[in-house]
Design a protein around this nucleic acid. Structure first.
Length: 275
DNA sequence: AAAGGCGCCAACCGCCAACTC
DNA sequence: TGAGTTGGCGGTTGGCGCCTT
């Protein structure tokens, strides 16, 4: 990315990566005047950046409570998948449902996911005649033949179900109780079934997953898996399917307690909640 | 050790609606 | 009321680091 500037209002406008000094100036500005009137940062001569650039920097990197450097959790993945199905590529809107995530975060997550899916779907179909173990020698992720995921028609949400409320909206920034909405919205918690219709081979795939339905764990960091680097999520992904499936899941996993919100969050590493 | 592939992500661009004068 | 400006948004690009071959 070039660092070339362009002249604007007699000032050589900077582009490219922000320096710590620029960040500090921008933070000072927001502390003084609030996150508004971005173009006045330039007109006041504080920074040789466009208002748009300042706003973007603030929104994506400097705003408090951002989850920077933290991968999307399985729950966040579920939410994005569900909401993308509902809203389409309305990243800003989707981001309002994810505390600490920006539209750019969601967009980047989705873009990476799409690339990964596209690559997976280009896998020669002849490989589907082999077992996962045969194909992978037990190292890479199971990659059964799949339908064209992006043309799968998702079922309409049932009208009677609770409405998922944005949690990242200005008037509701507090994310003190995520369990308010997640368990009451079962669609969010079963992305695998959304992406893999009830086909026999998909049931086989689900069964082979040992209940871990995270996209990242399904397709995720293939290199990491292949190299034996382990699962992307070091914690158990809670499963909120029908009760009998929960029971099966518990059995498979040796009887872990998935039943309560508290135990759910106990499964996450503590530093995940620092934000 | 080097090259290539890939994931991640910061930041830019263009479009458009809302706002201001 | 219309032109100019600003801000919001989605799409895209390109750099960097890690991993595999």
């Amino acid at each position: 990315m070039g660092m070339e500037g362009r002249r604007d209002l007699g000032m050589v406008m900077r582009k490219g990566p922000w320096t710590a000094e620029e960040d500090e100036i921008l933070m000072d500005y927001v502390a003084k005047y609030g996150p508004r009137d971005w173009s006045s940062i330039r007109s006041k001569g504080l920074l040789p950046r466009t208002g748009k650039s300042c706003r973007l920097r603030w929104v994506n990197k400097l705003k408090p409570d951002l989850k920077t450097g933290c991968k999307f959790s399985a729950e966040e993945e579920r939410i994005v998948i569900e909401l993308q199905a509902r809203f389409g590529n309305k990243w800003a809107r989707i981001a309002t449902y994810l505390q600490g995530r920006t539209d750019n975060d969601v967009k980047n997550f989705w873009s990476t996911r799409q690339k990964r899916l596209a690559r997976i779907l280009q896998t020669p179909t002849t490989t589907t005649t082999m077992t996962a173990t045969q194909r992978n020698h037990g190292k890479s992720p199971v990659c059964h033949e799949m339908p064209a995921l992006e043309v799968v028609q998702l079922p309409d949400l049932e009208p009677g179900l609770p409405v998922l409320e944005p949690i990242n909206a200005d008037e509701n920034l507090c994310f003190d109780d995520p369990m308010k909405f997640l368990p009451s919205f079962p669609q969010l918690l079963q992305p695998l079934e959304m992406e893999f219709p009830q086909l026999a081979e998909n049931q086989d795939l689900i069964a082979g997953l040992d209940c871990d339905m995270s996209f990242s764990n399904l397709f995720g960091n293939q290199r990491g898996l292949e190299s034996g680097a382990g699962q992307q999520f070091p914690f158990e992904v809670p499963f909120f399917g029908p009760e009998e499936e929960v029971q099966n899941c518990r059995t498979k996993r040796g009887g872990g307690d998935l039943g309560t919100p508290d135990s759910f969050f106990d499964d996450f590493p503590a530093d995940m909640f620092e934000w």
